[in-house]
Design a protein around this nucleic acid. Structure first.
Lengths: 110, 110
DNA sequence: TTGTATTATCGTAAATTTACGATATACGAT
DNA sequence: ATCGTATATCGTAAATTTACGATAATACAA
């Protein structure tokens, strides 16, 4: 990416794109699903579930946290992550707005 | 990404992640919104709307097409792209399943 | 047939992502 | 105070993404 062009797009779209980017990896989807199933989770469990090294899982967790999809604190040797309901609801609405009533009637495409 | 680890994840998640990846850029979000507004579109219009070179827009269109989010044909000097309603509906359901009823009650996180 | 206009592709450079091992950090137990 | 465990961060290599200019390719018009 030569030269970040994000300035040229609206802030809302840049933010939304960043959130979608956080969903754009199967490991992170798996993390989110795991967090959704249990209402509490620690990183250690995830390392066992995912086919990835501990450092990589931690990195994915950070990505999710920076995107605001999860929240959590780590108290010494134990960390507690959980979903960020606010962000997820916001994303849900954004998807609704984008895909809500798709209906292509142009007839010119296959 | 040293060594693609996608084999280690379920096919469904790999596919879903790829679709989210297609949404993970403000230019592609803008393209989708533009396609949603008009029911028909050609690439030329997009080049004027987006702050990007023609080659880059074409590249983004290809990404969207490969992810199955849009469909279209290009007949010589004119191309017609439109949304792929099927894929968008599928994604909508996937989001529903992921975020449908988020409710963190673990009480351990801020 | 020769342009003309529009879109796709190629080649390439810079930036980012993904993955890991190694190391640091922080808490609880002994 | 030290050890053990669990998580985060650092450094780094390979792969991918993004962006562009230059170049092809395709259909229509003259």
């Amino acid at each position: 990416m030569p030269i970040a062009k994000t300035d040229a797009f609206g802030r809302a779209d840049v933010a939304l794109a960043a959130q979608f980017k956080a969903l754009a990896h199967p490991a992170r989807l798996a993390i989110l699903r795991t967090l959704a199933e249990r209402s509490t989770c620690i990183c250690g469990d995830l390392v066992e579930v995912l086919p990835l090294a501990q450092a990589t899982v931690s990195q994915h967790l950070r990505a999710l946290k920076e995107a605001g999809l999860i929240q959590g604190e780590t108290d010494g040797p134990r960390s507690c992550y959980c979903l960020n309901a606010d962000t997820l609801r916001t994303m849900h609405k954004a998807v609704e707005a984008l895909f809500g009533d798709v209906d292509c009637s142009c007839g010119c495409c296959g």
